[in-house]
Simulated scan of single mutants.
Amino acid sequence: MPKGKFIVIEGLEGAGKSSAIALIKSAIEHAGHQVVSTREPGGTPMAEAIRECVKKDWQDEQVTTEAELLLMYAARAQLVANVIKPALNSGCWVLADRHDMSSRAYQGGGRQVPDSMIEPLREITLHGFHPDLTLYLDVEPEVGLARARGRGELDRIEQADISFFHRTREKYLRLCADDSNAVVINAMQDMDKVQQDIVSAFARFMGQQ
């Protein structure tokens, strides 16, 4: 049985990841593949509990940058070992709402954690494992956060200052420039054009398989 493919959707808050995921899921199923959907942090019972720890506002207790980073990789370790790799080995395609690029952008870029601290965690957790395709939906932070606020109350990370999100976006773009499996989608266009670009990027990926 051929191994499945691992596709990740990345982006800032309000970039339109949910719509992109639905679009890609439909395209994968139309191509005849079974899809397993995941999200990060989360995707397993333990990882979902870690997600709550990460997202929660702990009131008078400061969540340190180091704790946040370690929690993200702990959740990822559980998800990769218990869901993603088994699904891929069984022939399923895995479609993820965020993966390792998020930590490198949010904690590495936004929180300004140096690569020298992140790389050992990546090695322990992933051992070189990486997506076959990453679609990064690029949106200006002001635009994305305005969309996110329209959905409801922002979580602890979403409440960070705007400079945090500008640093995160800049790191995302640098990471994509260095990753041959990553495609940047302009998510500030009209929705129809964004969807067309997503479908086109996926079609090019399928044509390479």
Score class of each variant (00 low, 15 high):
residue 40 E to T: 13
residue 12 L to W: 01
residue 8 V to F: 05
residue 34 Q to I: 04
residue 37 S to D: 00
residue 17 K to L: 11
residue 35 V to N: 09
residue 38 T to S: 11
residue 15 A to T: 11
residue 29 E to T: 14
residue 42 G to M: 03
residue 31 A to Y: 04
residue 42 G to C: 08
residue 32 G to T: 08
residue 27 A to H: 08
residue 10 E to W: 10
residue 7 I to D: 02
residue 30 H to P: 00
residue 9 I to D: 02
residue 15 A to C: 13
residue 35 V to H: 12
residue 31 A to M: 06
residue 8 V to D: 04
residue 7 I to E: 02
residue 32 G to Y: 07
residue 20 A to R: 12
residue 30 H to I: 01
residue 29 E to Y: 06
residue 20 A to Y: 05
residue 28 I to M: 11
residue 43 G to L: 09
residue 19 S to G: 09
residue 25 K to G: 07
residue 47 A to C: 13
residue 5 K to I: 00
residue 51 R to D: 07
residue 41 P to K: 13
residue 41 P to N: 07
residue 25 K to W: 00
residue 29 E to M: 12
residue 40 E to K: 13
residue 32 G to Q: 12
residue 18 S to D: 12
residue 26 S to P: 00
residue 48 E to T: 09
residue 24 I to H: 00
residue 44 T to V: 12
residue 50 I to C: 02
residue 30 H to K: 15
residue 23 L to S: 11
residue 11 G to Y: 01
residue 9 I to E: 02
residue 8 V to Y: 08
residue 22 A to S: 14
residue 32 G to M: 09
residue 9 I to F: 07
residue 20 A to Q: 14
residue 30 H to F: 03
residue 36 V to A: 02
residue 51 R to N: 10
residue 28 I to E: 03
residue 33 H to R: 14
residue 49 A to N: 13
residue 29 E to G: 04
residue 39 R to C: 06
residue 35 V to L: 10
residue 39 R to T: 01
residue 48 E to L: 05
residue 8 V to H: 07
residue 16 G to W: 00
residue 8 V to A: 05
residue 38 T to F: 04
residue 15 A to N: 12
residue 19 S to F: 01
residue 21 I to T: 02
residue 28 I to Q: 11
residue 14 G to D: 07
residue 39 R to I: 01
residue 45 P to W: 10
residue 7 I to N: 05
residue 13 E to G: 08
residue 47 A to R: 13
residue 29 E to V: 09
residue 39 R to V: 01
residue 27 A to N: 05
residue 11 G to Q: 05
residue 48 E to I: 02
residue 43 G to E: 05
residue 7 I to M: 10
residue 22 A to H: 14
residue 47 A to E: 03
residue 40 E to S: 06
residue 26 S to Y: 04
residue 23 L to Q: 12
residue 26 S to R: 15
residue 25 K to L: 01
residue 17 K to S: 04
residue 40 E to G: 04
residue 40 E to H: 13
residue 38 T to L: 10
residue 27 A to E: 14
residue 51 R to S: 08
residue 47 A to M: 11
residue 34 Q to S: 13
residue 42 G to Y: 01
residue 9 I to M: 14
residue 44 T to D: 05
residue 10 E to V: 03
residue 49 A to C: 02
residue 48 E to Y: 05
residue 15 A to K: 13
residue 49 A to Y: 03
residue 12 L to S: 08
residue 37 S to W: 00
residue 20 A to I: 03
residue 31 A to H: 14
residue 16 G to Q: 01
